[in-house]
Design a protein around this nucleic acid. Structure first.
Lengths: 384, 384
DNA sequence: AAAACTATCGGGAACTTTCCCGAAAAAGGT
DNA sequence: ACCTTTTTCGGGAAAGTTCCCGATAGTTTT
């Protein structure tokens, strides 16, 4: 009852096992194995994206020629090119970037990893980076490490497996092992750090004058008459912590003040811990009369704690932050802070990445900071 | 001096034009055209990403088998699979998602378009969305329309050309033409709106109880004793503007207050305009004694303007916002606001998108709001 | 008019992976 | 010993594009 599709023989056909649930036959006369075609499969009206092959067939030319026309190649007749261009427009042809990416192993996508998204700073840097990158034709993939080393490693892995063409990173506060970035370098993927930079790896980076900014901030506090100045800063793994601490220490020393260990606190940058340490500082037998914080979110937490405890700012406590977060202008009294060009940090980082991708020599960009004196630290003016 | 690579003839070879800058020859004896191979091209030590073919060759098996082993297919010998797995690990094999994407036309990437990045709200929703999406194995591509219709169109175009598998959108305040989203639907790309939803298109969407929240906010103001309540809201193109306005109007009506046109202002949500209209309202011959703002950033601008003019909050002016932006707790007096579950909005939106991708019936999610009464609107308590 | 050249175009490999289907080898059944 | 079944594997197409290279037809030069 089954005829061989090759010799049309019927009698010589016999069963020959089952393959993937379908009966298989063997024609003894022509020694041909076969299974019966499945007629139940639907015709599959799957919508077909219009490709250059469609255009080529429609026009009766080769796909090479269509590609040339679309890519603006010279090696083509002006009339042919116009024909192709017209039809492409009419058919709403959109080139498939995946095919191109596969061919060139270049995705035109860069990954950005930031520690968090809650405050103003990192979203603002991303805005700047995106500005430059999308102008250069790159898409952007954004990840947050959530200040966690493990998440950061996972982010790097995910972005690398997505085959990004470059990586823009601001480290998590936990990170003190950089093997995941060494793996990035080993694969020759351009890598740029900004703000939270990596001290061990030799990559382009964007930073601000952390030392100078911190120095200016603390000197300002001293000039205002504060004498017992505490410093609430980030984990010692972060270079910004280190540099700003150094600026703090040197400013104290310059003015003959002796730093005290109990007034220098490293913490993990969570709001909860900020409150705990602010309370701790204000509960000391000899509480500080001013606090210089690593960043504005920290400074604001300090101010909230101080307010809750009835400590008057700036009379009983001077506070200075870092970054000029919009909140610092809103809070009362307005927060004195070291302003840094947030958008420009992102722009510069993107710029350095583009340079890396063009094999330019690695650069290090240092942006300027500016002390914005506001109400939270103006002791003398209050006194007058 | 030039010998034919086919018949090794020398005398019969003659020039035959120039092709792409290289001399071309023709052997008259065997009628063979050829150019001399270019010896100057570097050997190209281009680092080769390890592929399944590499593994297959190393093991002397076919790439199909390697693929089966890696994909955990059943149709394979346990020993062979282990062999492949071991070598893959040793060679640090990473599958190329591009090839897969090209084959399946599925990029495992979703695009998110939000109007802006400056305030707390949208980054927070993105955090929520990313949470759900990356758990489902999707990468995320984020764009900002910058409240511009043109940029939004460009964003949609860019994401579509990147072949995202889905789109999560919160509309720009300018958008009143939705053709770019119709194009998305035409291509069968799942689309979900959140917060700033599209009234014309039949898509899943995530919103909050805008009407109820606004009604509660205004009713609260009335109960506090405010009588001349203004409303500063967004462009009428936005559904949130419309719904919150309606809540405002109905609350007034319920309590026998007559809405006045000069107290209802639509604006483009820029900080500059917020300040201008706040000043305008406070300069009226009969200024309002309370303002209900579309969102917290607007409310905060209003408070700043009021403070600058010496208008006391809440005594002379009650203010209520919407969203519970962290700033609203910081500012003094703290801002009464209608809280909405920002992260949950993002999570829900992502959830609806995933459902769409699995061809589930489109849903509309409505999340609850909660009025947080704070200092900026507590007239009675002040009076006591 | 032969030789040399130019302007265009087509063919096909390559990129990496998955999947369909047929084939071989091994195992089981009578 | 022969047939059937199962297990395991290989070949090759497909996805969409770019690019290299050879091949024409027509044009100019000698």
């Amino acid at each position: 009852m089954v005829s061989c599709p090759k010799c049309n023989e019927v009698s010589a056909v016999q069963k020959a096992g089952i393959v993937r649930g379908k009966q298989r036959y063997c024609c003894k006369s022509c020694d041909f194995h076969f299974t019966l075609p499945d007629l139940t499969t639907a015709p599959q009206t799957k919508r077909h994206q219009v490709t250059i092959v469609d255009i080529a067939e429609e026009l009766g030319i080769s796909k090479s020629t269509v590609s040339r026309a679309l890519r603006g190649h010279t090696d083509i007749h002006a009339g042919t090119r116009q024909m192709v261009l017209d039809l492409a427009q009419q058919l709403e042809y959109q080139p498939n970037p995946l095919a191109n990416a596969l061919l060139k192993s270049k995705t035109n996508t860069v990954g950005i990893i930031v520690p968090e998204f809650r405050h103003y700073f990192f979203p603002a840097t991303i805005i700047g980076a995106q500005e430059v990158l999308s102008a250069a034709g790159y898409n952007v993939m954004i990840c947050q490490s959530d200040e966690s080393y493990e998440t950061e490693v996972a982010n790097v892995k995910a972005l690398m497996s997505s085959r990004v063409d470059g990586l823009l990173v601001s480290l998590s506060s936990q990170t003190n092992n950089f093997d995941h970035f060494r793996a990035v370098q080993r694969r020759d993927v351009p890598l740029v750090f900004f703000n939270r930079v990596c001290p061990e790896l030799d990559t382009p980076q964007v930073v601000v004058e952390d030392y100078a900014g911190a120095f200016a901030a603390v000197e300002h506090l001293i000039e205002q008459g504060y004498r017992r100045i505490a410093h609430l800063t980030g984990p010692s793994t972060l270079q910004v912590s280190h540099l700003r601490l150094q600026g703090y220490l040197d400013a104290l020393q310059k003015h003959g003040l002796v730093p005290e260990n109990e007034l220098i606190i490293h913490y993990d940058l969570t709001p909860e811990k900020a409150r705990i340490y602010a309370n701790y500082l204000l509960s000391l037998p000899q509480p500080p009369d001013a606090i210089f914080a690593l960043n504005d979110p920290t400074a604001i937490e300090i101010m909230l704690v101080a307010k809750a405890r009835g400590v008057k700012i700036p009379q009983e406590l001077g506070v200075v932050g870092f970054s000029n977060d919009p909140m610092s202008a809103i809070i009362e009294p307005p927060l004195t802070t070291v302003a840094q060009p947030v958008h420009e940090i992102g722009r510069q980082a993107a710029q350095l990445l583009l340079e890396q991708m063009n094999d330019a020599p690695p650069r290090r960009a240092v942006l300027t900071t500016q002390l914005l004196v506001r109400g939270s630290s103006q002791l003398e003016r209050q006194k007058k």
